[in-house]
Amino acid sequence: MVDMNVNLGGLKMASPVATASGTFGYGIEYIGAVDYSKLGAITAKGLRVEAWPGNPSPRHAEVPGGLVNAIGLQGTGVAHYLKITLPFFRSKTGKIPVIANIWGGSVEEYAEVARMLDDKVEAIEMNVSCPNVKAGGHTFGQDPKILSEVVSAVRAATKLPLFVKLAPNVPSIVPYVKACEDSGADALSLINTIPAMVIDVETRKPVLANSTGGLSGRAVHPVAVKLVYDAHRATKLPILAMGGIYSAKDAVEFFLAGASAVAVGTATFTNPEAVSNVYDGLAAYCEKHGFQSIRDLTGALES
């Protein structure tokens, strides 16, 4: 039996496979279609203090190799989440850890959301890289100085394992990795969607009401592997890797590049069983290649 336990910056997971923010709602929507027993954690979609309406419709376009979306972080707000959604999730799924993805319009709001969630969830993932929201999201993730400020503020607000989800569209990921490390982050989440655009050539208008969006799915996988590789060489912080995982092979690449755990996202939309298939495939890979623990696979890239 392969040991599939991982510790991601203080978050103990019985499986190295999680779900990616925004693709699994608040964890309750896929009950009945997903085998939750193979999930190491679920990531609840972006939470801020108040409810947020998100972007106008249309919010997505299917493209070869993936999906461009501009949902715009529609959500119910933390109070509703804690009162209604989270207790329902707990009652249905038992002990699966929850990573709460958070965002805000200001440094203070990020800290406030983290404070409200402290002791209620098992980890916090800061979204500083959503390409679809101006006020929050990416403005905090495109400058290492501002990134330090917001990560430090959240660090001071919570004792929970703190992950920072970084943007892929930077010249080098290293300054951002260092900023997270120096500001008290416990782990990194890589990657968010890649800024993208789809145009309807008949109407000559953008397909998305937001004009631009973020690309996810199969097409982003090699980009994500490279960024995980770069980040792993620059830091000892554990990495939760996501971006185009459809099968165990995609996940193994991330481990070899330096990930300590992975998250399945867009693939779930087509195949809700993808998460459990990835889990089974990872265990089988370790068995076949003589890795007694999934942890031994992290960074096991041959040069």
Binding site: G25, A33, K45, G54, Q74, T268
Partner: peptide
């Protein structure tokens, strides 16, 4: 409306 997940998880098919 165009849908992605069909189960309420992704918030794409808004009315």
């Amino acid at each position: 409306r165009h849908m992605i997940c069909g189960v309420g998880a992704c918030y794409a098919c808004i009315q």
